[in-house]
Write a protein that binds this DNA or RNA. Structure first.
Lengths: 197, 197
DNA sequence: GTTCGCCTTGTGCGGATGCCCAATATCGAC
DNA sequence: GTCGATATTGGGCATCCGCACAAGGCGAAC
């Protein structure tokens, strides 16, 4: 029945994927109608047929990627037995990105774009608010003090370390793990393990 | 003698200032020859007389700002008596920026640009390496464990929190201070103060 | 087989871009 | 005053931009 409609959805997917690639390669403002069309292997006119504007395509593509990645990072962490394992999983997710890979760059580019676009800012803010909420719930289960604030610092630190990592590859999970461990390790009143006397 | 040369230097300063403003307002890749010239109040041709390219102007202007701000943030911290006061000073510097002010945005834009330009990356990397070095020396004086790694996490966290702050203004220094205090507060073997036990 | 709706293409338009360049202004040296 | 070096201007060129649009498939419904 809807063979044409299905093909249209497939093209929309290809355009979103191409947009994400180009945001990472050239930067948000440098993604062009013709560039994304060529990368997706379609005619230039198709972009404005499927999307109201290039900017709208970028917003949709970037938000989709962020939701996917946040979900993939939060879900295993939530099932961690203790703070140690959860932090190890979170740092593993950090080590999967170098600061110069497409995912890192799209995240950072989208943050910048969101700082200048109130609508996009609200949507991106909702994504990280959900991630922080899930992280806080996990931290509370682990007995960490001030779970909400700790989650906020953790989320910020992960993105900030990604930012710095592009300039200093030595900034691995192994290097920062011990320090971040102090953040989640134990509240002043409820050490989970190894809280030496 | 060199009145003409002095005037040239003044124009170069105006162009750098205009470039910084426009990087913040529109984004690195969206700064144009004519835009920066108009903002600086000079003819469009002057940009390519004083600078080899728009990109070179942006690099020079952004790096100058970063050096200034890093110096202004590191210098008082180094003179702090203990970890508490130093962290308070650092968080004060954080609270001076909202994530959407020019300084924040230029920092973040420059990080992104540096991730795509090896030369710029090396220069920006040198700036934050110096900042981290000075922070590490201060942390060592305060008795914090693993001062280098702690400094790296602190520097990353500050920039990351700036990034998130544009989307969530509730992320103030007061909110994250208690958590960051765990990072610098005391090593496992050398608490500086208030190490209850 | 014809009609209809969605998808797809290429081209065109007005405008903006980076950079170059000839012409001009400014000002110290002599 | 004249000269020469530096600073400055505005315009021009080739190229790219976002978006609109007419024209053409192409499968499903009838």
């Amino acid at each position: 029945m809807a063979t044409a409609a299905e093909k249209g959805e497939q093209v929309r997917r290809r355009l979103r994927r191409a947009a994400v690639e180009l945001i990472a390669e050239t930067g948000w403002r440098a993604v062009t109608t013709r560039g994304v069309a060529e990368r997706a292997g379609v005619g230039a006119g198709l972009v404005h047929y499927h999307f109201p504007s290039v900017e709208a395509l970028l917003r949709e593509a970037a938000l989709g990627l962020m939701r996917e990645v946040a979900e993939r990072a939060a879900e295993p962490m939530e099932r961690a037995a203790d703070a140690d394992e959860g932090l190890r999983l979170l740092l593993g997710a950090l080590d999967a990105h170098t600061g110069t890979d497409p995912v890192s760059l799209v995240f950072l580019e989208t943050y910048l774009a969101a700082a200048r676009d109130a609508d996009l800012g609200a949507r991106v803010g909702a994504v990280i608010a959900e991630f922080r909420g899930r992280t806080a719930r996990w931290l509370r289960r682990c007995g960490t003090a001030e779970p909400e604030r700790t989650a906020a610092v953790l989320a910020g630190a992960v993105d900030g370390l990604l930012l710095h990592r592009a300039l200093d590859p030595a900034l691995t999970a192994a290097a920062v793990g011990p320090v971040l461990h102090r953040v989640v390790g134990a509240g002043p009143s409820a050490p989970t393990e190894g809280g030496r006397g």
